[in-house]
């Protein structure tokens, strides 16, 4: 494996919620500036896995993580890693759009303000506009920047959340079923956006839609019962899976 092409790799990753083990020895490499789709039945550990990459599991009481998650040759579970800095590098978009109860502008400016990315109001405007533009939302909200973000439609809210994540200039964007609460048109818009974003960001997306995984990702990993069963090029996984469980899942025989 060429280390320059690998952005994130996990080695022997085990996760426990209390007494229950959710992930078993996961070894996975995620490539730089590519979209990796994580597929698998509900409860198989996909979300747990991506929440390990920005240490979002830390906020869950009773959750323990063992093993290594290496981001650019640095173990993020090392003691001298600043979780706050890490999360600025690894952004996250959630299953349900969760705009803050603030204006559209303040939603996008939130991260930039916290990390002090802008020295003048002009720079902040610049960051907000660029992020909205890249999230493909600018034209729709240009006149509504001071309206509450919660007043947008579901699809717009999700793109607002993506703009919010982009605004802090992350290197990786994690997406946990970003389209599960959206209609097909809004989903298509987000998928298109993911394609554009993968030029600049490493993207990991959890999805339940096989078609979506096939459309947006270059690589895919199939999770089952907390372990990675198979991983590889998306086109190969979907046309010629080597494991029977993967074949059963993508042909809809279980899950």
């Amino acid at each position: 494996m060429n280390s320059a092409a690998t952005k994130i790799s996990t080695r022997g990753l085990n996760v426990f919620y209390g007494d229950k083990q959710a992930l078993f020895d996961v070894n996975l490499d995620l490539r730089r500036n590519q979209v990796t789709a994580l597929i698998g039945p509900s409860g198989c550990g996909k979300s747990t896995f991506i929440r390990c990459i920005n240490r979002m599991n830390d906020v869950i009481e009773g959750c323990r993580v063992r093993g290594k998650v290496i981001l650019d040759e640095e173990d993020i579970y090392c003691d001298d890693i600043d979780v706050v800095q890490l999360r600025a590098r690894v952004g996250m978009v959630f299953q349900k759009p969760n705009p803050f109860p603030k204006s559209v502008y303040d939603n996008v400016a939130y991260g930039a303000r916290i990390h002090g990315l802008a020295d003048t109001p002009g720079e902040l405007d610049e960051i907000v506009m660029t992020s909205l533009e890249r999230a493909g939302l600018l034209d729709e909200v240009r006149d509504r920047l001071s309206d509450p973000g919660t007043g947008l439609s579901g699809g717009q809210q999700q793109r607002l959340c993506i703009a919010r994540a982009i605004a802090v200039s992350p290197e990786v964007i994690l997406m946990d079923e970003p389209c599960s609460s959206l209609d097909p048109i809004a989903s298509a818009r987000i998928e298109e956006l993911i394609g554009e974003l993968s030029e600049n960001y490493t993207i990991v997306i959890v999805t339940h839609s096989m078609q979506q995984a096939a459309r947006v990702s270059q690589r895919a990993a199939f999770f089952h019962l907390g372990a990675v069963v198979e991983e590889g090029e998306t086109s190969r996984i979907f046309t010629d899976p080597s494991d029977e469980r993967t074949r059963d899942y993508i042909t809809g025989r279980f899950g």
């Binding site: 999360r87 969760n98 916290i114 994540a165």
Partner: peptide, 17 residues
């Protein structure tokens, strides 16, 4: 909602922020 907290933490905000 917990999702708001996670959204903020996910952007690199500290718990107090």
């Amino acid at each position: 909602p917990q999702s708001l907290r996670e959204g903020s933490l996910g952007l690199g905000a500290t718990p107090s922020e």
